[in-house]
Simulated scan of single mutants.
Amino acid sequence: MADHDKNEVDEVSGTETTGHEWDGIKELNTPLPRWWLWTFYGTIVWGVIYTILYPAWPLVNDATAGVLGYSSRTAVHEAIEQAAAEQSVFTDKISALDIEEVASDAELVQFATSGGAAVFRNYCSQCHGAGAAGVQASGYPNLLDDDWIWGGTLADIETTIRHGIRYDADDDTRISEMPAFGDMEILSKEEIAAVADHVLSFTGAASSTEEGATLYADNCAACHGEEGKGMHELGAPNLTDAIWLYGGSRDRVIETITHSRAGAMPAWNKEVRGASGLTDAQIKQVAIYVHSLGGGQ
């Protein structure tokens, strides 16, 4: 080959150039270090071996299994089963005991509260909020206060979680049916407004009239009580504490009386929900956790 066909050799480094030059700067044809090349070749060999041993290549509905038969999904399930087995010393006790008995054991309460918090985040926070404060005026109760429509004892909370509210699939679900006094034409608009004023008078938010008091006594007191204190057995809210599930303005109270409310909560027991439900221990744990938030009775 003629000398003029050869690339130039850099005088300073003694390395041949590539023949490329930019703004007077010439590119050196410096070879890659041997260690780098062998490392690169090693990663190629490692990659080929990996794709043979482990799941790697995607197929239409699956992926190549690999000769070792490893599955990350199986590994996760095994880890969960191992954790469940280690926790069974506590969960078995919780399942076997009444929730009041669980609450009397400090060690079980500590375990149940931690486990219940995890259950709450996974199954309950979507409606009641991560902090359990609910969504005001939207029918998702605040679990931090002392206002409980169906009772706030440990047993009451457990029953609500286990069987739900107005959950048709569970024969033991809790049901209360407030008439839609306007839609059913039981009361006129004027009468509903009078009842609303009487209800709001319990908290001093409005002034009652004799008509409103009479209408309340005839239509509402049977469930909410003459003084508006409510009845847990019937799921009738306390109207005297200024805590309102659907809002406590005059317009919202009129709306409630006119159309009624029928919020629902799922039953979480496995007998009804199947695989998507909670175990007996999980129900008791989340009941204890909710009760520990500061509300409850």
Score class of each variant (00 low, 15 high):
294 G>K: 01
75 A>R: 09
49 I>S: 09
235 G>F: 06
228 G>L: 01
6 K>M: 12
176 S>F: 11
18 T>W: 01
223 C>N: 10
7 N>I: 05
239 L>E: 04
245 L>I: 12
110 Q>T: 14
110 Q>R: 14
117 A>E: 13
46 W>S: 15
63 A>L: 05
251 D>K: 08
154 L>Q: 06
249 S>R: 06
27 E>V: 14
211 E>W: 00
10 D>T: 10
174 R>W: 03
256 T>K: 10
243 I>P: 00
101 E>L: 07
8 E>H: 10
71 S>N: 10
164 G>L: 04
46 W>A: 15
45 V>L: 11
220 C>T: 03
266 P>D: 07
104 S>F: 00
188 S>C: 02
146 D>M: 03
20 H>I: 13
28 L>H: 02
297 Q>I: 12
116 G>S: 05
296 G>H: 05
119 V>D: 08
136 Q>G: 15
149 I>S: 03
297 Q>R: 12
15 T>K: 13
29 N>P: 03
74 T>A: 14
46 W>I: 15
168 D>P: 02
163 H>T: 06
248 G>T: 08
191 E>S: 02
98 D>S: 12
105 D>H: 07
6 K>V: 09
33 P>A: 12
41 Y>H: 06
107 E>A: 15
212 G>S: 02
220 C>D: 08
282 Q>N: 09
188 S>W: 00
291 H>M: 02
264 A>V: 13
272 V>D: 10
39 T>K: 12
40 F>Y: 14
201 S>G: 07
120 F>K: 08
164 G>S: 05
237 P>R: 11
180 A>W: 04
106 A>T: 10
281 A>Y: 10
284 K>D: 06
93 K>V: 04
104 S>R: 11
34 R>F: 09
296 G>C: 08
235 G>C: 08
89 V>E: 12
76 V>C: 07
109 V>A: 05
89 V>T: 11
91 T>A: 03
63 A>D: 07
66 G>R: 11
194 A>T: 04
130 A>T: 11
128 H>V: 12
79 A>Y: 03
260 S>N: 14
239 L>V: 00
87 Q>D: 15
165 I>E: 08
64 T>L: 06
23 D>G: 14
212 G>D: 01
222 A>L: 10
257 I>W: 01
